[in-house]
């Protein structure tokens, strides 16, 4: 289903969602100049919004810290942000959501904590029109338009908003709006796509060539930033924090040596090179990288995906 809406009609859709009990979040610059989601219906679409540095969408479905159960009576604890309509998600993050959905909901065990929050989440992604800092989403097939992971995907075409429905709820919401011309959208997409760099995907695969791995390992300071900000990094750890009668699940990072250490103190991957290999196995081998570029923005050693790209592609 492809519809055509004015900005005012987009706002109507958001108002409808509010009426259905959703909290609408939209991108806004705060008083310090950082992009942080704000509650309410936006006045206008912020053209200059690149993406959030922090992966708020992942945070909604998988909070980086959440209580899981009570240690006294093993009563499950369920943390939620309530029903959220996330307006202005970038396509890379919607794609990331599709990856985490597949991982948390479509394998042997379903994660109910995730599932309940996911059901309460309505994603309205907005297609990108220019590449943001450090991103290579087109190469990874996650941008500038998402193929999955959204309820509605909006395209800002010629002063109007073309709306693509990705779920039944969205089809219902958009039903009464006029149909859009798919051919025109295709033309627009082609034009936009040209602005996005396309690298040789075949080189962005596991294994990491060892000179590249060594280069990255020498420069990794083990801050975990690439992982704390990765929209598809969902490794977690469960433990009882000191002084609390709950077990929390908190995000864990495979570039920390403690991640790989066993009870006796020995490590499964004692060197940074092995940890680095483990990470790239996941991001490029199994394939959970969307090319959003956050890791490169936050890497204190300048040794994240942009360095990987530069080193493997050799300045292409």
């Amino acid at each position: 289903m492809l519809k055509r809406l004015t900005w005012e009609q987009v706002r109507d859709v958001l108002r409808n969602l509010e009426g259905m009990g959703y909290t609408v979040l939209h991108p806004a610059k705060n008083e310090f100049g950082d992009w942080i989601p704000r509650q309410g219906i936006p006045e206008r679409w912020p053209e200059d919004f690149p993406n959030y540095l922090f992966p708020f969408l992942r945070e909604i479905v998988l909070p980086s810290t959440e209580p899981v159960f009570d240690t006294a009576d093993y009563r499950p604890i369920f943390h939620t942000y309530g029903k959220i309509a996330f307006f202005g998600a970038r396509p890379c993050d919607a794609t990331a959501l599709a990856y985490t959905d597949a991982f948390y909901l479509e394998r042997l065990f379903r994660d109910k904590h995730y599932e309940k929050r996911r059901k309460d989440l309505f994603v309205i992604s907005v297609a990108c029109t220019r590449p943001c800092e450090n991103s290579f989403c087109r190469t990874m097939g996650a941008g500038p338009f998402a193929g999955k992971g959204f309820d509605i995907q909006l395209y800002p075409v010629e002063g109007l908003w073309y709306a693509e429905a990705g779920s039944d709820a969205a089809r219902e919401l958009l039903r009464d709006y006029p149909d859009a011309d798919a051919g025109r959208l295709e033309e627009w997409r082609k034009k936009v796509l040209e602005r996005f760099p396309l690298y040789d995907r075949t080189k962005l695969r596991y294994p990491v060539p060892s000179p590249v791995r060594d280069f990255l390992s020498d420069r990794c300071f083990s801050c975990g930033g690439c992982i704390w900000l990765c929209p598809t990094c969902t490794c977690y750890n469960e433990r009882q924090p000191a002084g609390l009668n709950v077990v929390v699940r908190e995000q864990d990072a495979c570039l920390l040596s403690g991640y790989h250490r066993l009870a006796k103190g020995a490590s499964l991957r004692p060197t940074m090179k092995e940890m680095m290999g483990f990470r790239y196995e996941c991001k490029l081998g199994i394939g959970f990288c969307t090319g959003c570029g956050r890791c490169s923005t936050t890497c204190i050693g300048y040794a994240a995906m942009d360095a990987y790209l530069e080193k493997t592609l050799g300045g292409e």
């Binding site: 310090f32 100049g33 950082d34 992009w35 540095l53 922090f54 300071f221 083990s222 801050c223 975990g224 930033g225 900000l229 920390l256 923005t297 936050t298 890497c299 204190i300």
Partner: peptide
């Protein structure tokens, strides 16, 4: 993290 801060620029240590 804060992207706009002149020193940290969205970067932090562990």
């Amino acid at each position: 993290p804060s992207r706009s801060h002149p020193i940290s620029r969205g970067r932090l240590c562990l």
